[in-house]
Design a protein around this nucleic acid. Structure first.
Lengths: 333, 333
DNA sequence: ATGAAAGCGCTAACAG
DNA sequence: CTGTTAGCGCTTTCAT
């Protein structure tokens, strides 16, 4: 049973393929009678349009690709919702690609996006150097989120550095004496920015050591980072952690060492994960407006797709919010 | 600057398009010299294959679609990793689609999958009645996960009922007198199964009331479910919660009411989310082998895609693991 | 081993 | 308002 194509419908309805195409795409100027016959025929035969052929001909599709760094990170899934909500309103489907903090997977998805001629892509680049030239050559609009790209592009970013600085300052104000920073891998711009924010705060307070480690943006990264820091000669008494997944690892290691959070050690992390207020003690965090990042990025992208956007790249910056809960407070033992 | 196509490369290299195609697809029997010229030309012109055209001609693609019920649910993101790891090994890309517990979004993605002729799809159907006939008509292999479909299909499922029964029994054995169940929406088979498991346990113990509510598989669902149950005349003293996101909502409501977990109320939930051991007190759970579900599903699918699968649908059943932590233990006040 | 040429299924000029 | 037809860019027989 070969698939039914437009010509089969045409024959069944006694019209030309052009007419079939017209009614199926609800073009104007089609005799209602013929239209009826066509729809009937299509129904009867169970005709299903071939999207590939259509795309090839039209040179366009109505899907956008969202390439995120890690599906396991609630920050990115929240972004996803923002993108989906906006895209759906406009009739676009969003295909999610999990680059998994891996440049080669990212490159694969970028290639898939390019070769399947998606209408546009939203990307959180693994590194600033990520090569997106294929997209521009194919004139596929791109908006960059979370991490900047060396090339100028529409983007929506967060003032990570300020958030990190605020977090660290909060730790110091709360009475902790040796705050340290567990940040992401060196190649990640957000990791650097958060580290810089930490540096700023520490320097503002003078005579404080700069204590930090780089580690993967994952639970095990947080665990390892905490272990390294805590094993050092003059260990920190407070930790600023660069993302929620790492924070879980930190919790794990802190628990293993039987350290009392709020007494032996203070903790604050980036990202207000759904669980943050339920861990013990409730985790203080620097919340990012994840949903908005997604929504705004989608808006920017859809404007470009629709052609209603200026030539120059636009940059949107969003701010973080410091949410103080318990893990960062200091109580004497 | 029109896009470079295969014929441009052919001209540049002084060969036919057929030859270009052959070297680019590393077919055998190509003169190394010509092959070199072709590659050089392609490089020089910056040729990028058009995947759409290729797919149209080949009538196939190398991407599989994974349609999940909710990206925000760590259970599904863990499945995603399993699928990705297997797919990648075989050279397939996986496109993730978030149906968001919504039949119409699900239908949209099913249509996208069909029309873009993905090699196969892995789906966690929103309802048993989800219409996948379009896929079969297009002979796109499908494997169903998590929730069954009325049609016979390759599937990988979990013995939810047994897990639920074990969880409830554990609650009873721990000394709780009025265990209740907060399960998902009625249309979700997993919600029903978990409820049935709860019923089984309760009935095995005789003279226990059957206390339960249906609610969305989300945090707010858990919150609302807990509120309704706790507001009833003769409220439960223990809660079996049907998924991790709901459990967060339960925690929220329980906290709001200042109920002491382990004293005033016992809790156990489905799914061992990354945060489960860090909430206060550590959450007892029924763990599902999420990664394996994904990996096995991908294996099943890839066999069909490769044609190396029997005609009859295969069904894989995986078991849950009861992990007792603190939230389900009972201490006198 | 290479090239010519026929489409894959659809849409959009262009004619009528 | 409808039909004819020329491709979209690529792969793959079929000849040579």
């Amino acid at each position: 049973m070969g698939t039914i194509k437009i010509i089969d419908v045409a024959r069944e309805a006694g019209v030309s393929t052009a007419t079939v195409s017209r009614v199926l795409n609800s073009h104007a100027n089609v005799d209602p009678v013929l239209a009826g016959r066509v729809r009937e025929a299509a129904d009867k035969l169970g005709y299903r349009p071939n999207g590939i052929a259509r795309s090839l001909r039209r040179q366009s599709t109505d899907v956008i690709a969202l390439i995120i760094s890690d599906v396991g990170n609630p920050f990115f899934t929240a972004i996803t919702r923002g993108v989906e909500d906006i895209a759906q309103k406009t009739g676009y489907s969003v295909l999610l690609c999990n680059a998994d903090e891996d440049s080669s997977k990212e490159a694969t998805y970028l290639a898939v996006a390019e070769q399947s001629q998606v209408a546009g892509v939203i990307l959180s680049p693994h590194q600033a150097g990520t090569d997106v030239s294929a997209l521009s050559r194919a004139s596929i609009p791109l908006v960059v989120i979370d991490r900047p790209l060396s090339e100028a592009m529409d983007s929506v970013m967060v003032h990570s550095r300020d958030g990190a600085r605020a977090a660290t300052n909060h730790l110091i104000d709360a009475g902790w004496k040796r705050p340290a920073c567990i940040t992401g891998p060196e190649e990640a711009a957000t990791a650097q920015e958060r580290l810089e924010g930490y540096f700023q705060a520490v320097r503002e307070h003078g005579n404080l050591d700069e204590l930090y480690v780089h580690a993967p943006f994952r639970q095990h990264g947080g665990l390892e980072g905490a272990a390294r820091l805590l094993d050092s000669d003059n260990p920190p008494d407070a930790l600023f952690v660069a993302n929620a997944q790492m924070a879980l690892g930190v919790l794990q290691e802190v628990k293993r060492r039987n350290l009392r959070i709020g007494v032996d050690i203070g903790i604050i992390s980036f990202d207000d994960a759904p669980w943050a207020q339920f861990v013990s003690p409730p985790m203080s965090v620097v919340a990012q407006p994840a949903y908005d990042i997604g929504a705004q990025a989608a808006q920017l992208l859809l404007q470009r797709v629709g052609g209603s956007a200026p030539i120059e790249p636009r940059h949107i910056f969003l701010s973080t919010t410091l949410i103080v809960r318990e893990s960062s407070r200091r109580h004497s033992a």
